[in-house]
Design a protein around this nucleic acid. Structure first.
Lengths: 123, 123
DNA sequence: TCAACCGTATTATAACTATAATACGGTTGA
DNA sequence: TCAACCGTATTATAGTTATAATACGGTTGA
């Protein structure tokens, strides 16, 4: 059963995208693996304090990416191939870094200053 | 007159927040200064290809932060104090760096790997 | 077996975001 | 002066996000 203990709801982005991102990052980290069980819609919505429909939307979109398999009445579970892991890693790592770089450049911050800032805030 | 030539609309965040962020980053970079004229609602909406009301919402929120002054009928302009610049710089720099760090940590990426990735993608 | 789950679907409400079409009166430069 | 701007306001429409309250039938373990 995959864990949501480190999930934190914050920014202004939609909750369902935060759930999707949390799961994808777990896949990259290796903490979420192929054939892992995932919490039911009702259980996770209760755990996160959100509406079941919000969880269902996240799960449905992950299912459309073939990262989740569901059967009516039964538990749902992850279906993650190595190809998918590699693809998601490439996408998320790059987009995460590019977001920082774009922002820093628009603020006129040098590469060296950016490195220093990350160094200072990492721990 | 402040310039929007480097403005690019992209992510899934609301357009009005993107406009606000663009202006705040320009303030930090020093390319947008106190007393600078800003484009009229109609001109900027036409330039960006968005609705005038969307620009108005961004301008109104900046006005509520005392970063813009408007008089009915006349041009609007920036009102930026050094105190505001320092505050915005601290806020935006830190949030930008923290976004990267949070993501990288959730993906199980080490600080060294993160530095390398930024180095690779910066230019 | 069957109660307790499960996934799935529907309907309603509400806030937010964005567009569209107007309208009003104030400001300003040629 | 006055046309061309300006900021501001209103009304309507539409899509997205989120919640709430139900409902239906499938799966599964004790």
């Amino acid at each position: 059963m995959i864990s949501f203990e480190h999930f934190k709801m914050e920014d202004g982005s939609p909750i369902y995208t935060q759930i999707i991102l949390y799961i994808k990052r777990g896949i990259i980290a290796g903490t979420i693996r192929d054939q892992d069980e995932i919490p039911s819609r009702r259980v996770l919505s209760s755990l996160l304090g959100v509406n079941p429909n919000t969880v269902q939307k996240a799960y449905r979109m992950l299912e459309e990416e073939n990262l989740i398999e569901s059967r009516s009445g039964a538990k749902s579970f992850m279906t993650v191939s190595q190809i998918q892991v590699d693809l998601i890693r490439a996408q998320l790592l790059e987009s995460n870094a590019r977001n920082l770089i774009t922002g820093m450049k628009q603020m006129g911050i040098s590469k060296e200053e950016a490195h220093k800032l990350i160094e200072k805030l990492w721990d």
